[in-house]
């Protein structure tokens, strides 16, 4: 099994520069994406029930090995990664091209899992793009995954319906946040992870033609969204508060009484 995990800034601790309104990404704590970890958890459970090896794959600029080791501490066996400045400008196209080759380089897999959306860019694209690039079917937004002999059975949830799909390997699955809750590694697991193999692959080893590395989208700017709110705290007991709220809403013109 291959699991794609992306190193992203921890949004909960992210700050912005009040003069430019841009995020201070260089000061952010790096972590692995939420739905990526869900995909990893799903792979680990498959491994525990049905066997197999779990390899994590990642691409980024200035990747922190300690952060990638968190995936190994959860129970992944090995890691292959590309750390290259090219990824600071990479869009979904370039990312998919790099990761599909990295997956091949790492020996291919029967089951490839990734998150439904990365926590920073939220493109929802890697799974479907890999599917086209690698010629492997993909089931997006999985909320459950079961193995039944050779058959992989996936339940997926869409806005207006849920579906159950079946396929044989090879198969790509993108994990909805609800597929599993990522485990917290124990101290023992963290220690064990320090000995697990990590392979840094140079981007030149992937044999990517130039146009596969040329982004089709360029980021011009990023700015924080701020909406001024009045922050009026209503105090008192439930009835008092309710009276005050209704009065205020009448005054605001949204209610008539």
């Amino acid at each position: 099994m291959h699991v794609f995990v992306k190193q992203v800034p921890d949004i909960s601790t992210l700050e912005y520069d009040p003069s430019t309104l841009a995020p201070r990404l260089e000061k952010a704590t790096p972590r692995l994406g939420e739905s990526d970890l869900v995909a990893l958890e799903a792979a680990l459970r498959i491994k525990e029930s049905w066997g197999g090896e779990v390899v994590v794959l990642s691409a980024g600029d200035g990747l922190n090995e300690l952060v990638l080791r968190e995936a190994l501490a959860m129970g992944a066996d090995r890691c292959f990664y590309v750390s290259d400045p090219i990824l600071s400008r990479a869009d979904a196209w370039v990312t998919a091209n790099i990761l599909s080759r990295l997956s091949k380089k790492a020996g291919g897999a029967d089951l490839l899992l990734c998150g439904e959306a990365s926590s920073d860019s939220g493109n929802y694209q890697l799974g479907p793009r890999l599917s086209e690039a690698m010629g492997i079917p993909c089931i997006t937004h999985a909320v459950s995954v079961e193995l039944d002999g050779k058959v992989v059975r996936v339940r997926r949830s869409l806005e207006d319906r849920t579906e159950i799909l079946e396929s044989e390997a090879p198969l790509i699955i993108t994990a909805s946040l609800e597929l599993a809750s990522p485990r917290l590694p124990s101290l023992l697991m963290i220690k064990a992870a320090s000995k697990k193999p990590m392979t840094r692959v140079d981007i030149s080893e992937l044999g990517l033609e130039k146009d596969l590395l040329e982004p089709l989208v360029e980021r011009l700017s990023v700015r924080v969204l701020k909406t001024a709110r009045r922050n009026i705290v209503l105090d008192g007991g439930p009835l008092e508060c309710a009276e005050r709220l209704v009065e205020s809403l009448v005054r605001e013109g949204v209610l008539r009484a």
Binding site: P9, I11, L14, Y16, P23, S119, D120, S121, G122, P215, L216, V217, E218, R219, L220, S221, V222, R223, V224, L225
Partner: peptide, 14 residues
Amino acid sequence: PFLGGGYVERLAIK
């Protein structure tokens, strides 16, 4: 939206 929705990114299509 970018970074969970607290930010917006402006992108040029090439």
